[in-house]
Design a protein around this nucleic acid. Structure first.
Length: 904
DNA sequence: TTATTGCATGGCT
DNA sequence: AAGCCATGCAATA
């Protein structure tokens, strides 16, 4: 062409050298020269355009590609009508549509093929063949059958196919060029909805690997946006086709619902760059653009987003008809460009595309979300999918079995089920961004049916829809109840959504929440744990347990893990990302709202709270250390037992010291109600009978006489003399004296109007209930937190220090008071004189507290007095409020004492 | 009356 | 402060 003063079009001209090393763009009177160093320059392109000098005239005359350079490589035949087309020139982009299956269609044929498709708005483009003229039928059904989430490695992506036009494309490109190229520094100037490659830098996440594409796939860089006039324009179906069928795994292919206010999905913009899959390294070799060049920067920026080893988005492909790759700048679809839609079109696109490739995987750390920083920045951490290498490998091995293909796993997102989600209503609220990013675009509230496979291969069809909400949308999956039930999911469990490529199938996994399991055990002890939890690994998608992603947890579902958040801190999925602080108050709050009943239902007036406080304290008396041995952490030089498991409820016993100084504890047989003297170290389950009395062979039967009269015992500890058998489950808030801890808890729950305690018997310390501030509750799970150093200022350490300090002060005070109390105690008939033990367990299970609310800061940590086998240990597993009675030795000076005071 | 649907509300990030 | 989203709740079936 004639560079100087030459005008190909009054709109734009793009020319690219055959080796794609250089290009130029003309917009209005300005040229952008890839070799130039000053960006847009007036005048004319002086080099690249010359390559196309022969075209200019034809272009101006509208005869471009029809009559021109017929001898030049790049001519192809329309697959439908056989018409000769040139598809190798950037300027001819509007004249053809690439077919995924190979070959091209002329614009007319493509338009025809899309006429029907356009009748079904908001449907993504099915597989390429589905859009051939002879295959356009029953779009909705085909959607269900063939829809693939955006970002799939192969064509057949989103489709919004009704409102674009060639003119729109042209003007769109003009806009694009104006916006994108005329910006030396990237996307800062990019208005919402105008996302070109530059924009990717800020808006998009990783690019996605795509398998080697069929020969003939050219490199496509495209974008769509509104035309230059702000008018809603129609995109030619052919262009729509060309766009969508190539969007492939690019995160940019994520649809934009453009719903805010406008509710005009059909006009939503899709943004992003599109490329055909090849290898990323070719990019660097083929696109030797000046680093100052916007396009190159675009490319580089995007390439830089790629994880090492992952196929790139900007790729080079085999030449078409011998011609070198061509960079096609495909105009963006115009949008209605209402302010809302524009904003919506700016929707960030995030994506995490997991390729089952060892090299790829090696670039991820276990437990980290399979998404790059940008994705993380766009998606709330709680929705981050996470997967470990191991899980990926498992998936990669598992899914090809079902799909007969080399699967690519893309964890999309995860969500902890709320009560509403898990309820009978059968509606799963989807995170908006996730829904818009990973699910097909919907313009009507009715939405679309969406097929989702579970890990076992069972296919579910949900209705993916939305509700208008506050000028926005609220996305839901309807009809999930059967699926939820089949997975035995409850509120607090996590459902995961991943995609298997190239099939493009959505897979839904889940992971049971540890907390949920605990609650489940507490509330439904007779009900077996979620079957899915114990299901064989083969059904891994449905069987994974919550776990630390990067730990050695077994029985983990890779799929689940692929899209499931880390569960920690008692099994509650963290809202924060891996790099954020754990267990923030906010996350706990959030958890409370999402897991349990609606938070409002937790609310109690002060009176109720007080009552519950008492009952809790009483319940605490029944706590026994968990079976699992604690780990020991050092805080301020003190050893702390850190229990991973909460205390369990054991049987209430009474500690006494007889006259010989020997310590005993007395327990009551559940069957005969006889009291048996046991060693102090005996740990009794909540259900205990004489037959369990392995310490006293003479009294292993209920037939055996009681060693002491009840009246005598009544003087030692607060039992009712003469009460041969205390009624079970006696509910006296001020006199919790039941024989069975579980019953007690159940009854206490009744006292607490069923809100403060598990409604069912439990063996777990309900540490995560509102208001519980015990160390167990505030400490991170054992082994999951950093080692506590002397200078550690974490919440646990600070609390421990504070409480320990309070404890020491109180002990001093107590010691000073002891002298006056001692004579009085000696007057009481005793069975012994030895100092009593404070606890039946090494963890100094509270044997009684005076339940002084003012002692909230007290530490139940008399490591000198504690019977803990570890000296100088502060038991983290104790309710602070129960500290007083935890220093029994200090209180026992020769006199038998009642280690557990009257609860009242 | 019960279940479902669709929107509204408000807590929370 | 805006927007998300969990849930309430009235309308409807």
């Amino acid at each position: 062409m004639a560079p100087t003063g030459s005008t190909w079009s009054d709109r734009y001209v793009v020319a690219i050298s055959e080796d794609i090393r250089e290009f130029c763009v003309k917009l209005g009177g300005l040229w952008f020269d890839s070799r130039a160093t000053h960006g847009w320059v007036p005048g004319a392109c002086m080099h690249v355009c010359s390559l196309f000098s022969v075209c200019s005239g034809s272009f101006e005359q509208g005869s471009f590609c029809e009559t021109f350079h017929s001898e030049v490589a790049g001519w192809r035949n329309c697959e439908a009508c056989g018409k000769r087309l040139h598809c190798g020139c950037i300027v001819s982009i509007h004249a053809y549509a690439l077919l995924d299956a190979g070959g091209v269609d002329c614009i007319l044929c493509t338009r025809k093929s899309y006429a029907a498709a356009a009748m079904a708005p908001n449907q993504m483009c099915p597989t390429p063949t589905m859009h051939m003229p002879q295959n356009v039928a029953d779009k909705k059904d085909s959607f269900v059958k063939s829809w693939r989430p955006p970002g799939g490695p192969y064509p057949s992506q989103w489709r919004q196919n009704s409102l674009w036009s060639v003119s729109g494309i042209q003007s769109d490109l003009q806009q694009r060029l104006a916006y994108e190229f005329d910006r030396p520094s990237g996307s800062e100037k990019l208005p919402p909805g105008r996302t070109f490659i530059h924009a990717q830098e800020k808006k998009f996440d990783d690019m996605h690997d795509r398998p080697t594409t069929p020969a003939g796939m050219n490199q496509i860089i495209r974008d769509r946006h509104a035309d230059g006039h702000g008018q809603q324009t129609s995109m030619d179906p052919a262009h729509s086709y060309a766009l969508y069928q190539r969007e492939g795994p690019n995160p940019n292919s994520l649809h934009d619902h453009s719903h805010h206010g406008g509710e005009s999905d059909s006009t939503s913009a899709r943004k992003g760059i599109i490329s055909e899959g090849c290898s990323s390294n070719i990019v660097s070799s083929s696109f030797k653009l000046d680093s100052r060049h916007p396009l190159e920067s675009l490319l580089k920026e995007n390439i830089s987003l790629l994880p090492v080893g992952v196929g790139c988005t900007i790729t080079n492909c085999p030449p078409v008809n011998g011609r070198n790759d061509i960079v096609r700048i495909i105009p963006h679809q115009p949008t209605s460009q209402t302010p809302s839609s524009a904003a919506s079109s700016a929707q960030k696109q995030f994506y995490s595309h997991t390729v089952i490739d060892p090299e790829y995987q090696s670039h991820f750390r276990n437990g980290k979300p399979r998404m790059d920083a940008k994705a993380r920045s766009q998606l709330l951490p709680r929705y981050w999918p996470r997967i470990t290498d191991k899980e990926l490998q498992h998936l990669s091995a598992e899914y090809p079995k079902r799909t007969n293909s080399k699967s690519v796993i893309t964890p999309l997102f995860e969500k902890m089920l709320s009560a509403s989600d898990a309820g009978r209503i059968g509606r799963l609220v989807l995170p908006k961004k996730c829904a818009e990013a990973y699910f097909p675009p919907i313009s009507q509230p009715e939405g679309l049916p969406l097929k989702v496979q579970d890990g076992s291969g069972k296919e579910w069809v949900f209705q993916f829809r939305f509700w208008p909400n506050n000028n926005s949308r609220m996305y839901v999956l309807e009809g999930v109840t059967p699926c939820i039930q089949s997975m035995h999911l409850q509120a607090g469990d996590i459902v995961t959504f991943s995609r298997i490529d190239p099939e493009g199938k959505l897979i839904m996994g889940f992971r049971k929440s540890t907390t949920q399991e605990q609650i489940l055990r507490q509330e439904q002890p007779t009900k077996p744990a979620n079957a899915a939890v114990t299901a064989p690994p083969e059904v891994n998608v449905n069987v994974a347990r919550p776990h630390e992603v990067n730990t050695e947890n077994k029985n983990i579902s890779p799929v689940d893990q692929a899209a499931v958040g880390k569960v920690e801190n008692g099994g509650v999925a963290q809202k924060e990302g891996p790099g954020t602080a754990r267990s923030s108050p906010g996350s706990l709050k959030r958890k409370a709202t999402s897991v349990g009943p609606k938070i409002k239902r937790f609310r109690m007036d002060n009176e109720e709270s007080m009552e519950l406080k008492i009952t809790w304290e009483e319940a605490q008396e029944l706590l026994r250390p968990p079976l699992k041995a604690p780990s020991v952490v050092i805080v301020d030089g003190h050893e702390f037992e850190e229990y991973e498991e909460p205390p369990i409820l054991g049987r209430r016993t009474y500690f006494v010291t007889d006259q010989s100084g020997e310590n005993h504890q007395w327990a009551q047989c559940e069957d005969c109600s006889k009291w048996r003297k046991l060693p102090v170290g005996a740990l009794l389950p909540s259900k205990w009978t004489c037959s369990d009395n392995k310490w006293d062979p003479e009294r292993t039967s209920c037939e055996s006489a009681q060693e002491a009269t009840t009246e005598e015992l009544a003087e030692l500890f607060p039992i009712k003399a003469g009460a041969a058998k205390k009624p079970k489950a006696r509910i006296e808030p001020d006199s919790i004296d039941v024989s069975d801890g579980l019953d007690t808890l159940a009854n206490l729950a009744i006292l607490g109007e069923g809100e403060s305690l598990p409604s069912q018997p439990t063996t777990k310390h309900p540490r995560h209930r509102p208001g519980c501030s015990c160390i167990v509750c505030i400490q991170p799970p054992s082994g999951k937190g950093p080692k506590h150093k002397q200078t550690c200022t974490c919440n646990v350490c600070m609390t421990v220090r504070r409480r320990f300090k309070t404890l020491m002060l109180r002990r001093e005070k107590r010691l000073s008071e002891k002298d006056t109390e001692e004579p009085r105690r000696k007057e009481v008939p005793q069975t012994g004189s030895d100092p009593p033990l404070g606890s039946t367990s090494p963890t100094s299970s509270p044997q009684k507290a005076d339940a002084n609310p003012d002692d909230a800061e007290d530490m139940v940590v008399d490591h000198r007095m504690s019977s803990s086998p570890v000296k100088n240990q502060i038991d983290l597993n104790i309710q602070p409020e129960r500290e007083d009675e935890q220093s029994p030795k200090s209180n026992a000076v020769g006199a038998a004492r009642l280690p557990r005071d009257n609860p009242t």
